[in-house]
Design a protein around this nucleic acid. Structure first.
Lengths: 215, 215
DNA sequence: CAAATAGTGTCTCTAAGACATTATACT
DNA sequence: AGTATAATGTCTTAGAGACACTATTTG
């Protein structure tokens, strides 16, 4: 009566490269779709993983060699139509990382020019991107696409690239200041062309993410 | 290697009774926790259910005798700690219904006075309530707690009861009008004490739900 | 000094919020 | 007429948005 279905976790690993959101894909080492580019994923290992998030974390560590600063459950995709082997479940997660922490293993693909992907991975990526774009307008999510320390201008560029709109500098800074989830890195400034900029980092404890609704 | 875990769907069936959100619970007919009040739930039936949403719909129909106007996936709760039988997965859903469509079978419990529930059902209910309260501030969700046709005053009361705050009548109506997802039921008015009120219903096709962020 | 980027200040105008007024039923 | 509720209008004010200005570096 139980006929337990195939149970996996899949991860949409997103990063910002050349000003555009990219998703990290890996070549599948096993059938079905052996050799195709697909989301990093794998079976849940009941003996090792205490829960689904832990399974996702393990998959990312083992297969993509990444420990992301932000990882969250996205949605569960389940049904008879998504895997040729039969009824299956994928507990999908999404993660944000700075490009630099990705090694050479994953292939980065712009999310707005997705190729055909195996299973329903195309739909999973779309759902994740939609979620990230939506949530970015009222949360600190885009911070996790940057290195641990960054300037406010870099942060604004990141928000703009994720949201796909231009933001007003003065207003953007007002809001970020209100949320006060950032702190100055004392004495640290960016190099570069014009006036050096103060570097900021996410305030230690403070892992709050959701704020007033609109950037 | 696959060791597929126990796979179930659970449903948080919410309604408004006496001005407060209530969750519908059923007595468990099987071990573990036989006889305890718990969320309507059951195994996924790969042969019958095309996907998880269909499984949730079937469970609600079979066990609670309800076909809810609004049903959505909430989150997946999985891990080794939630079921004495071992590693398990619950694809949790939540549904909103008008109190009248619930028969005598389910026990209604106020969500703010939850008793101890088996498994992690307490946490699941909390997550659902949090989601509904949050989403209600920028969506049409509360509509589904009302009968198919209702007055704007009743709708405002519903929003106020779900959100737990008082809303300004004039402003509330402005916003609802902007969204224009309701239509007047021609010639239909409420009875009662004072001036009769126009009855409204959700515009047929229009199943849009998310709008500007704030009621 | 010019160019480039960082950082702050000010003005306007929309829209949220509070409140008042009119409308229509029943007793 | 008095009461109760519906429906709409008006005024004030906070805040979003647009823009300008100042500050600090490099070449």
């Amino acid at each position: 009566m139980t006929e337990a279905p195939i149970t996996t976790v899949d991860c949409v690993l997103l990063t910002l490269r050349a000003g555009a959101l990219h998703v990290a894909l890996l070549r599948r080492e096993a059938a079905p779709f052996k050799g195709a580019l697909a989301l990093p994923g794998g079976y849940v290992h009941p003996a090792e993983d205490v829960d689904a998030l832990a399974a996702a974390r393990r998959v990312l560590r083992e297969k993509a060699d990444v420990v992301p600063p932000y990882l969250e459950q996205l949605c569960t995709f389940a049904g008879s139509g998504r895997d040729p082997r039969g009824w299956s479940i994928s507990i999908a997660h999404y993660a944000l990382v700075h490009e630099a922490v990705l090694g050479a293993r994953p292939t980065l693909v712009p999310v707005d020019e997705l190729p055909q992907l195996p299973f329903d991975h195309g739909r999973i990526v779309e759902t994740a991107v939609h979620r990230v774009r939506d949530k970015s307008s009222y949360s600190t999510l885009p911070c996790y696409l940057l290195p641990p320390t960054f300037t406010l201008s870099a942060l604004q560029r990141t928000y703009e690239q994720v949201l796909g709109v231009a933001l007003d500098k003065s207003q953007f800074r007002r809001r970020i200041a209100e949320w006060s989830f950032l702190e100055e890195v004392p004495g640290a400034f960016s190099a570069g062309k014009g006036r050096p900029a103060q570097l900021y980092r996410i305030r230690p404890r403070q892992r709050l993410e959701l704020f007033d609704r609109t950037v």
